[in-house]
């Protein structure tokens, strides 16, 4: 009888501990979700902070401008009016800047933390995207492959599939202290052929990425909020297709057989 009582005592203690852990985790998730629904400080700075100078950058098919913000860093501005018309057949010029913001929002809701803060703002009378400039961050094609963090790149692969990015390559991602920054996301959410970076073959999606996808899919309010925000920036069918792709990734992360990162599995686009 004594042994049984002891066992019950320890069982009760274990259950209470597990319940407390679950509650703490749920609270943490809830707080994370709440933060996502609130505009980040960096976005407010980009939207409101006075600009101190602008420098039109030379080269590139689209117009790009380096903008310095008073007491708070710098940013890359891409005006709608400077978008080159024939970059893709399925993504129309005049919409690239909104897609930059849409990519940032998807990144934030998923918690991937790949895209630098990006907002839409008017500068010198022109509307465009304004994205925080990451200093001292070379593009991947200027880094030795030993500096590449494979898990970060796999996360980027999943992200680019979700936003259906037709333009990821070694010069559209930055690497700084092993962290990856996804830049130049304006040619996303359409039907043009997918451009993915990195050669992964039958490799598991990282646990962290799978967990983030799972968390997002279980967050009903977040899904609806993201859809609403995306519909202000891209076509409704493009927003829905993006959400479908997140669901597809969610299904792919369940079970060993499909728990892989490869091109074949990352090709489904509801818009096709």
């Amino acid at each position: 009888m004594k042994n049984l009582n002891e066992e019950l005592y320890f069982l009760k203690e274990r259950l209470e501990k597990e319940q407390a852990e679950e509650e703490a985790q749920a609270k943490k998730i809830s707080l994370e979700h709440e933060k996502t629904l609130t505009k980040k400080d960096e976005e407010v700075v980009l939207e409101k902070r006075e600009k101190t100078s602008t420098k039109k950058l030379g080269g590139g098919a689209n117009e790009t401008v380096f903008v310095e913000l008073k007491d708070d860093g710098s940013a890359i501005f891409k005006p709608k009016a400077g978008e080159y018309a024939l970059l893709r057949t399925e993504v129309k010029a005049g919409t690239y800047y909104k897609r930059e913001r849409a990519a940032y929002l998807v990144d934030q809701f998923l918690g991937f933390d790949l895209v630098p803060p990006t907002v839409i703002r008017k500068i010198d009378g022109k509307e465009g995207s304004l994205q925080e400039f990451i200093p001292n961050a070379p593009v991947a094609s200027r880094c030795d492959e030993s500096q590449w963090n494979k898990e970060e790149l796999k996360k980027l692969w999943v992200f680019d599939y979700i936003i259906y990015n037709s333009d990821r390559h070694g010069s559209n991602l930055l690497i700084k202290d092993e962290k990856v920054y996804a830049i130049d996301n304006g040619l996303s959410f359409g039907k043009d052929s997918l451009g993915l970076f990195g050669g992964f073959s039958n490799e598991p999606i990282g646990d962290g990425v799978a967990e983030k996808i799972k968390m997002f899919l279980s967050w009903k309010q977040g899904r609806q909020a993201l859809r609403n925000l995306l519909c202000e920036l891209i076509e409704e069918k493009e927003a829905d297709a993006c959400l479908h792709r997140i669901e597809k990734v969610g299904k792919m992360t369940k079970g060993e057989a499909v728990n892989v990162v490869n091109r074949e599995k990352f090709s489904f686009n509801p818009l096709d």
Partner: peptide, 14 residues
């Protein structure tokens, strides 16, 4: 090249 390098971090001329 100018369609490839257009991010603002790396740009290619005409």
């Amino acid at each position: 090249l100018k369609f490839h390098f257009k991010s603002g971090y790396m740009n290619a001329s005409d």
